[in-house]
Design a protein around this nucleic acid. Structure first.
Lengths: 194, 194
DNA sequence: AATAGAACCGGACTACGGTCCGTTTAGTCC
DNA sequence: GGACTAAACGGACCGTAGTCCGGTTCTATT
């Protein structure tokens, strides 16, 4: 977050902390929907413009709020124990990745949803690029020789879209187990399995 | 559109026509973004409330605007010549369906995008259910025996999400041919092909 | 410690989608 | 054709995300 070129000014840092704290408080009280920018500004004792300079948009703020948990998940994928982390067979890692992603999305629900409504389109966000790359790597290791590896990885990731998953769970009562099963089925077939 | 239970009142019909005409005019002049509800109301000489009673939301209006082309595409899929229509091998129909869908989304671009921002979530819209059912049927005919046929069809359709396709084309310069290739690769693998 | 200027601050302002409710009008029944 | 009712109408109103810019505060420099 802190730019390399210049240290963050102390008042800016103080306000950023205040804002994140106030944001979590508001969400804790009334859910993500209760977090409006006006309320946040008032509750944090800060001007509205300050929020937008700092986080760019409401979605940017949500992204920042998710930073910690997102980093934790990334760490589990990149350095954690198998099958999610390195060490397991590529297909098993792929299956575990989907299951983990599904669990993550359902756990943070509305927050992920709100973060997705970024003006940038929710695809170019750094994390998305990382997952794309990760899936692409696992596919290659699994021996999948696709004419469009990058697009194939993107397609599989589109399957894990937060809005879709939450819609299925909330409006159709689909269980997390069924989602995981479906993902396993999909990637197994793509990888040329049974 | 006209409810079976009661005929539409003449003033309502007149205003609906006015609104659709004015909407197409505004879009023709300044693109979909230029179609704001206030402007539309003024340009059509109609109150704003009238628009919302008739179409429910901005997305609903967009959906209505797409009605004709959507119906045309549906007709091609359900009754048209192979490989999109009936008569071809299931896998070929599936491939053609994706290609057709991609072309459709790219052709109507922003309109489809705006229609997708419906409050209902863009998944429960009637057309989406139809495509889901269609893909599910083709998979079954192709001998794909999935533990979750409905979710599998939904996953494949998620791959054709308008926002994703348009993002790839507009922000990454991906061609329609590459998208079609990737879709073919995906469904071929799912169907157990090469 | 004084100073300059960059970074930051705040809140009034805009544009938008969507709602509400008192008013008008179309269709119907006598 | 007059009266009645349900439907449609319209535009003021609301809450929202996001912008703008004059004033303020921090920090580096001397």
């Amino acid at each position: 977050m802190t730019p390399v070129t210049a240290a963050e000014r102390s008042d800016a840092a103080r306000n950023r902390e205040r804002l994140l704290l106030a944001a979590r408080e508001l969400i804790g009280q009334g859910g993500v929907a209760a977090l409006t920018m006006d309320r946040l500004a008032e509750h944090a004792g800060v001007g509205k413009g300050t929020i937008f300079r700092r986080f760019g948009s409401r979605a940017g703020l949500m992204l920042t709020l998710l930073d910690d948990s997102e980093a934790a998940f990334q760490a589990r994928v990149l350095f954690g124990p198998p099958p999610l982390g390195p060490g397991a067979a590529p297909l098993d890692r792929l299956i575990a990745f989907g299951a983990g992603r599904i669990a993550y999305v359902l756990e943070y629900g509305d927050l992920v949803l709100a973060a997705g409504h970024a003006s940038r389109g929710r695809f170019d966000v750094p994390a998305a690029a990382l997952w794309n790359h990760h899936v692409q790597m696992l596919l290659r290791e699994a021996g999948v020789d696709s004419p469009e590896p990058w697009l194939m990885a993107g397609s599989l990731n589109a399957t894990l879209d937060a809005e879709r998953l939450l819609h299925l769970v909330r409006d159709h009562g689909v269980t997390i187990e069924r989602l995981a099963t479906s993902w396993r089925d999909l990637v197994t077939r793509v990888a040329g399995g049974a």
